[in-house]
């Protein structure tokens, strides 16, 4: 079996992640301007990032609503998905590296990678339940 070239795969994942994310973000910004806002907020409210109390924050943009937001053509959800693609890009790299270490039967680094992955997953899925 040909040896997996870890660096080339990592490079490809990182590049595709950035391109996909930026495309979603740019489409989202255009949609917010064309439709005059998003997530039932006006353009002025969406763009009011000088006043934390009077604008939209990530807290009200729940990942559970992302799909519906995309279907509705809501620009804010396109931006949100674009930003989450950024968060998930390093996760994909870690999963890919985990597979590579597993193939190489490198027990120690499979374990270390799993710990890093565990930390990232805790940050994404567990800690949010306790903050807010």
């Amino acid at each position: 079996m040909p040896k997996l070239d870890q660096n080339s795969i990592t490079s490809l994942i990182l590049k595709s992640g950035v391109i996909l994310s930026l495309s979603m973000i740019i489409i989202g910004v255009v949609l917010v301007f064309i439709r005059g806002g998003g997530d039932s907020m006006s353009l002025s409210q969406v763009a009011n990032y000088h006043n934390p109390g009077y604008t939209i924050t990530s807290k009200s943009l729940l990942p559970a609503n992302f799909l519906q937001g995309l279907i509705n053509g809501d620009g804010l959800y396109f931006i949100s998905v674009g930003l989450w693609v950024l968060i998930f890009t390093p996760l994909t790299v870690l999963i890919d590296a985990l597979i590579t270490f597993g193939h190489e039967r490198n027990k120690l680094y499979t374990l270390l990678d799993a710990v890093v992955l565990f930390n990232l997953l805790i940050a994404i899925f567990v800690i949010p339940r306790f903050i807010g």
Binding site: Y49, T57, S58, K59, I79, W84, I124, G132
Partner: peptide
């Protein structure tokens, strides 16, 4: 940064626009 960002997201520190 991805680790911190997801916590920031749910704490409401990211203004998407």
């Amino acid at each position: 940064a991805a680790t911190g960002s997801s916590i920031y997201w749910f704490a409401g520190y990211i203004q998407p626009f």
